[in-house]
Design a protein around this nucleic acid. Sequence first.
DNA 1: AAAGTTTCCGTAACCGGTTACAAGAATTCA
DNA 2: TGAATTCTTGTAACCGGTTACGGAAACTTT
Lengths: 329, 329
Amino acid sequence: MAKVTIQEVARAAGVSKGTVSRVLNARDGVNGETRTSVLDVMTQLGYVPDPGARNLARRGKHVIGLSLDGDERRGNTYYGILRDALEFRFSSEGYSTKIFSGYDPAMLEAESDGVILLGVHLDDSRPSQLEARKVPFVMVGHSLEHAERAPWVDVDNISGLFEAVRHLIKLGHKRIAHLTGASTGQASRQRIEGYRKGMLEAKLKIDNQLVWDGEFTEVGGYRAVRRALAAKLEFSAIAAASDEMAFGAIMALEDEGLRIPWDVSVTGFDDLPSAASFKPALSTVRQDITTIGIRAAEMLLESMAGKKVSSALVPVKLIVRASSGAHTT
Amino acid sequence: MAKVTIQEVARAAGVSKGTVSRVLNARDGVNGETRTSVLDVMTQLGYVPDPGARNLARRGKHVIGLSLDGDERRGNTYYGILRDALEFRFSSEGYSTKIFSGYDPAMLEAESDGVILLGVHLDDSRPSQLEARKVPFVMVGHSLEHAERAPWVDVDNISGLFEAVRHLIKLGHKRIAHLTGASTGQASRQRIEGYRKGMLEAKLKIDNQLVWDGEFTEVGGYRAVRRALAAKLEFSAIAAASDEMAFGAIMALEDEGLRIPWDVSVTGFDDLPSAASFKPALSTVRQDITTIGIRAAEMLLESMAGKKVSSALVPVKLIVRASSGAHTT
DNA sequence: AAAGTTTCCGTAACCGGTTACAAGAATTCA
DNA sequence: TGAATTCTTGTAACCGGTTACGGAAACTTT
């Protein structure tokens, strides 16, 4: 299929290029009927505007920056999916994306029209720097410190772990451990809070010995569980703050001859593609990373257009699979 | 700094746009003096051609596809760095990159001008499919099966492990174990071959019990070492086929009370950013992923220009740090 | 020295969009 | 009903490059 241009759409719809462009950019001053007919022709022909030509005509930089913190260890897969989603959304709008690692001043120097901030932490200087330069930005993930200053989009961490724990409790578990990530991250804190909330609701005792640091990695989860087993701690379920830690935990349990879910139930958080194919299939809290990315992109787009946008907390969903089961004495 | 256009360069150099463009694209029919003077002005003004405008004028799609195999587990960090490098090189040439997961037929349907193939395995159908459609492509990594059919760029896996083993032998080690990755991959096979070659050269016995599968992951390395320790296998050094497996191996050794490098020496492969900051700093075989990416991009660019390109084996370098030391009885 | 070649470079059209401007049609107002 | 507005749309210039074409100048050839 040869590429279809705005000219062809115009001819097919019996209007001029200008009108098609106006429809395309949702500008007003176009008759309702004309608009819908043009829209029809566009979908029928499968028209997709050429980003290059658009940028050229719009005479802007049309670059948006992705700013990561240095912490690449955490959630590689998560980051990859998010990045794909952002790129997808932005490219369809004629923007290209550029990666900046850590805090790169070049980012500010008129290098990008807007910025997506990943992994903002407590004493992060990026939000205030961007604010000072009046560069529009939105954060993925949020912390109380920065929550009021700029729009963010984040998953509902608290509810996520709350639901997971509630699920385990409903299965009869009482001694439920929590595998947490690095203590600096906001996500970890919120997930611990969700865990606490879940235990509290059922009036179960919160034993700090059952909160283990798994460093947000598979091997971290593995080691934490090994240590717990070596210390002869008692527990019948583990609610992990990430799928990767849950994978590690399960491997460690199985290596010690325990069977999942008969001896120990395990839940994760993320619902990575591998969660469903893992053996046993992992019960987990699904966060739709793609949705988060697209949401963030759209918020930034609006913010760059001068609109005021408000932050978004995207809901999570508990996915029950094979790794969690009833508590058998 | 306001953006400088081809017009301004032309005016400053006292020639026309056309001439500047000819210089830019290294076309002939331009006087030597004129050429150098234009070149001077360009660097002086810091002129960078607008990719969007170029693509528009060159009337091509100017998209190149990145085709991954499904195996996302292997080397997340590796993949991320490679991708950045490819993107960097292509974008400076006015190409945008698009990700295709697994074998996506859309890739062929005039979606991209060229393709980079990642993780080609033995019975991979992608090379022949692309060949049939006459889509230019280059492979990152190589296997004997496909090596002759299309250009590839790969790191010198054999020499890499050979050097690592030789290094360990020089330190006095005789019982050297090898942590390998998934057996389907070509890289694993070549690295095993390098290991064998190193042992053979020193006339050391190759004990198959000392070749462990670490699945190319940290946790895989951890478990493999644990199993080896539990089986009371004897060894004083481990040459791993990836940094991540080496990290896992070191953690497992330390968890059992062994000290690196005094009790066991460990080497990795990749030299990821984290290798230097790991404790102890990891001795490893450096493969410059960025160089590989840039090389691959340039080869594809040439191939798309119709030139015949030949494959490239990029050299590796042994980096000695703290994790390997002399064998102490 | 006239004619034929080459070499070098300016001109202008074009790529696929956006947008200021103007003009015709429809509507509102007196 | 004629004038003043408001809608709607076509026209043409422009974004920053590339490239076919043609002409002037310099070089060869007879």
